[in-house]
Amino acid sequence: MKSLYSSLGLLLIAMFSIQFGASFAKQLFPLAGAAGATALRVFISALVLSVVAKIWKHKISKKEILPIAAYGISLGAMNLLFYFSLERIPLGIAVAVEFVGPLSVALFSSKKSWDILWVALAGAGIYMLLPVASSSTAALDGLGVFLALAAGFFWALYIVFGKKISKATGSLQTTSWGMWFAALVTVPAGFIFNGKQILDPSLLPMGLAIALLSSAIPYSLEMKAMTNIPTKTFGILMSMEPVVAIFAGFVMLNESLTLTQSVAVACIIAASAGSTATAK
């Protein structure tokens, strides 16, 4: 029981680490831009994870290159689009909308009558976040919502490809190799959109902090936590990540949600947790 509680604690720390890392990244946008911040995060994360995982001791075969490349490219596109969405909408909402990706993977792999309810809840939540559903000045930026949905699409691909390669090498080694392929997406984008800014050496300390908070630390903690937490419990707890994101956005970025936006996020969280709870 103690190991379960300690694993739950590690998982909570990982969620807070990821979302506070995203808050720090958003504060970096005025200096490095969304693309620049993504490039710094992914590149530095690749370096850190490579050292921790000692990937030079775990070479990948020719058969593994393509699936790991697909995994990494999906990871890079997911991070880039997510940071682009953060430029336009609050952190908590961006995380909630992005959760449609893993939710879709779960629903497509299930054929239960409960799934109709989860699809309806998620659809209602997304609709309430669209500008067409609100005529008030608090209406969200439509492009920001679309970018978060696009990030969710690549998150779904990341999950699909990640499952295929999970047995290829050790988990952290696979993530490290995938992160380098992700860098092939994010670093060129960083130079295209924010080439001059990301070459500023004064940004490296904050880039390192974001890489550690958003990738190296949470990945390591999640892997350790998963050894003692049942898969279904893990999925339900991860569904609460938008709540952590809302808290981080409020504390670090002074972002708050309207009542409608809060209800919309609650619908998406309920859909995600419900689909996990009713899954086989």
Rank of each mutant, 00 (worst) to 15 (best):
H58F: 12
A139S: 10
P242S: 08
P67E: 09
S176F: 00
A168D: 14
I210L: 13
Y219Q: 05
L103W: 00
F146I: 15
K62R: 15
I198H: 05
A39N: 06
I13D: 01
P201K: 04
A211M: 08
S109T: 09
M252Y: 15
Q173K: 09
G178W: 02
W177R: 07
C267Y: 07
V97F: 00
A14S: 14
A77E: 07
G142I: 12
G178D: 01
L143A: 12
A168C: 10
S74G: 12
L259P: 06
A182Q: 03
L80W: 13
L10E: 11
G274Y: 00
Q261E: 10
T233W: 09
W155S: 01
G33P: 05
A35G: 04
S171D: 15
S109D: 05
F181D: 00
I73F: 15
S166T: 11
Q27Y: 08
V243H: 01
E241Q: 09
F234S: 08
A189N: 11
S23P: 06
F29I: 08
G152P: 08
I165M: 07
L208V: 15
L212K: 10
I269A: 08
P205W: 07
T278C: 06
F24N: 00
I198K: 04
G274D: 04
P102N: 02
P188L: 06
V42K: 00
A151G: 09
F43E: 01
L86C: 06
L259R: 14
A25Q: 09
F250Y: 15
A14N: 05
A150C: 15
Y158S: 02
M15Q: 06
A46Y: 10
A216V: 04
G101T: 10
K232F: 14
S104N: 06
S136E: 12
P230I: 05
A225C: 06
Y158V: 05
